[in-house]
């Protein structure tokens, strides 16, 4: 099962490598990991997407909690939450493709943020499936490069992760 794990961690040098080292050392899956400081710059917040059986996910949260610099761990996917990911995708945009790409981008509520006479850079946010669908919806031969941030997530309503 796919899980979205949120981690509040001391914003200190090396903290990230403790988390990534934990996943590789114990053979846990990691699909994506995003991290940045929070409004309180002494804390960073990570979102980790991982897959595994319930037992493995239980161990992952326990092991994360065991790291000295980790302040809090929550499995967001246990309840209602939202997920977003940002993608920048550079496509070859010439001739009739220019119109078509613009049209598809609009359908997905993407924005073209860089234009040359032969390329577009399209910015798209959404959950992972939406980004995947967009990539699937355009002609693969037109894609020059893509870059994705990985998922970040937050609980809905009163579910709050803070100190």
């Amino acid at each position: 099962m796919r899980h979205v794990i949120s981690v509040l961690i001391e914003n200190e040098a090396g903290a990230l490598s403790r988390v990534s080292g934990l996943f590789s050392a114990r053979g846990y899956n990691i699909e994506s990991l995003t991290v940045a400081p929070t409004e309180d710059v002494s804390l960073s917040r990570m979102t980790i997407i991982s897959t595994g059986s319930d037992d493995i996910i239980e161990q992952i949260t326990k092991q994360l909690n065991k790291l000295i610099e980790v302040v809090k761990v929550v499995d967001l996917s246990e309840a209602a939450h939202v997920e977003r990911e940002l993608m920048l995708i550079k496509v070859r945009a010439t001739g009739k493709d220019r119109e078509e790409l613009k049209r598809v981008a609009d359908i997905f509520r993407g924005r073209i943020i860089d234009v040359t006479d032969s390329t577009y850079v399209i910015e798209l946010t959404g959950n992972t499936t939406k980004l995947d669908s967009f990539v699937g919806a355009i002609d693969a031969s037109l894609i020059l490069e893509t870059v994705r941030t990985g998922v970040c997530g937050i609980g809905r309503g009163d579910r709050i992760l803070r100190l």
């Binding site: 040098a13 090396g14 490598s17 403790r18 080292g21 050392a25 000295i68």
Partner: peptide
């Protein structure tokens, strides 16, 4: 040192 010992210490500091 911090990197090489990380997996076998409870914690480490530089």
């Amino acid at each position: 040192t911090v990197g090489i010992t990380r997996p076998c210490v409870k914690h480490n500091f530089l």
